[in-house]
Amino acid sequence: MSSTSEKFLVGIFDDEDILLHGVDGVRDKGVKIHEVYSPFPVHGLDEALGYKRTRLPIAAFIFGLTGTALALTMQIWMLGYDWPMIIGGKTLLHCLHSFRYFELTVLLSALGMVATFFIVSDMKPYKTPRSYDIRSTDDKHVMAIDLASNKLSKEDISRILKESGASEVNEKNF
């Protein structure tokens, strides 16, 4: 499809435990894994693949702080300075207003984090993802290996994949 052809070897794994061993096996042999696609989250897979922890919680925290600050400034400025009113004999600014700080904190934190997640994972409604094997959303774990970024030959990688537990090995070009 694309003008610059990319060649991938695709190993299919039937079971998450075999997959986890397989990932270790393949990486031990010096094969660089492009990515693994699973129908459900496999615990320990990110560590096996050597991924660093995601920094999304930090994003969530920063967005949350923004929400708190926004609510606080809004409140103090609007009620304390811009248009003070005598309401029920209460003082203009008091701690009972604080519910909204919490709500805005949560709102901005959640929305900001999810937006960040979509952006860093490049997810959008009109995007069509690459499908290395269509069964990867059903019941198969799919390990994609980019031949261009590996020094080993196609046959060697294919053998390594089989040895590590892949039930089939296919070739996929984009």
Binding site: S38, L45, D46, P125, P129
Partner: peptide, 12 residues
């Protein structure tokens, strides 16, 4: 949203 089930995406 063009979900592909990549391990990295699952982690996030």
């Amino acid at each position: 949203f063009g979900w592909d089930g990549a391990a990295k995406t699952w982690m996030r």
